[in-house]
Amino acid sequence: MTDSIADGVSSRAPAWGADTPAGEAEARERLLDAAEACYAARGPRRTSMSNIASMAGVHRTTVYTYFPNKDAMLAACFVRATAGVLKAADPEFDSEGPFLEKLVRAWIAGMNAARSSSIIRLLVDDEEVAGTYRAAEASELWREAVTSQLEGRMVEAMRAGEVRDDLPVETLARWVIRCVFSFIAEPGHIDDGGDEGLMRAFVIPSLEPRRPPGR
């Protein structure tokens, strides 16, 4: 296993009884499903690794085989849910129009998906969300499953001169995703034009190509 969420964890999975997963990917998905069920029932802060093991029907050591601690489990759930949000936004990037206009539409579609996601709402509304976000962002899984999806789109826009090129594309992608989650937690006020109004006023100008002074 290569992502940092699972660093230092044995790749040998303990027995699952008669219902053995087909592989590590399926095992991880089952544990994440169990974790999300526990978060919904108990809340992220009150959910222990033992609770997750019980929900999944395995020993606690099995959970630790795939996720070294509670933060890693939270981060993995967060990454999985975020990847789903980006998937919902993807069709907008394939539509017609300038990149930044497509980004606005994708942003709105993604936030609608996020606000309808029970796990995103739980983790964003919870007091531990800052720690969860940091743990997710520090993981290679976040880089591969989340940030890279947006980076690919932004590289093309940067080459076409539609996005500023004075900063690394990774920095721009992280900035956009951070903004998305700040808007999910605190929607734009109606007097400011709501989410779209604030995005057009502040986020989009921060991504526009830099122009030389006097031009």
Rank of each mutant, 00 (worst) to 15 (best):
R215S: 10
P68I: 05
R174D: 15
E140Y: 01
A89K: 00
R143Q: 09
F93P: 01
V176P: 06
D126W: 13
T82M: 08
K102L: 01
R105E: 15
L141W: 06
P209W: 07
A81L: 04
E137D: 13
E101N: 11
R45P: 10
F202G: 05
E144L: 06
P68L: 04
A22L: 14
Y133W: 14
G84I: 09
A185L: 09
P187M: 03
V203D: 00
V155S: 09
L167C: 04
D71C: 01
A15Q: 13
S139L: 04
R42Y: 01
R121C: 14
A106N: 10
G43H: 04
E128Y: 05
E36C: 08
S139F: 02
G131S: 09
G131C: 13
I177Y: 12
P44I: 07
A76T: 10
D166S: 08
L150Y: 03
L123C: 11
P212Q: 13
E24N: 07
C179D: 12
L141I: 12
D19Q: 15
L198M: 10
L122I: 14
G84P: 04
A81S: 10
K70V: 03
A22H: 13
V146P: 05
R134A: 15
C77F: 04
I177G: 07
T171I: 12
T65W: 05
A185H: 10
G97V: 08
K102S: 06
R210M: 00
C77L: 03
A130Q: 11
F202E: 03
V63E: 02
I108W: 03
D71G: 06
D126N: 13
V155W: 00
A76W: 00
A160E: 15
S95R: 06
S54Y: 12
F202W: 01
V155N: 10
D125I: 10
L74W: 09
P212F: 09
F202Y: 07
R159Y: 13
V180L: 11
M158G: 08
G194L: 05
M1Y: 11
A41Y: 12
E96P: 12
T82P: 00
F78C: 10
R121N: 15
D19F: 14
D19S: 15
S95F: 01
T20S: 14
G214P: 05
P68E: 08
A35P: 00
A88W: 00
K70N: 05
S95Y: 06
G193R: 03
G84T: 07
T47R: 07
R46Y: 13
E137R: 12
A145M: 11
L100I: 11
R28H: 10
F183V: 01
G193P: 00
R211D: 00
M1Q: 04
A15E: 14
I204Q: 03
R211V: 08
T47K: 09
Y66R: 14
A22N: 11
G110W: 04
C38F: 08
L123I: 01
P91K: 02
L141Y: 02
P68T: 05
H59Q: 15
T20M: 14
V79K: 01
R30A: 00
A145Y: 05
L207W: 01
A41M: 07
E26M: 07
M55Q: 15
A88M: 03
G57T: 08
T47Q: 06
P21D: 04
F78G: 04
D3R: 08
P91R: 02
D3C: 10
T65S: 15
D3V: 11
R105S: 15
A75I: 02
R200L: 09
P213D: 09
V104A: 12
L31G: 02
G84M: 03
D126A: 14
N112I: 11
R42A: 09
C179Q: 12
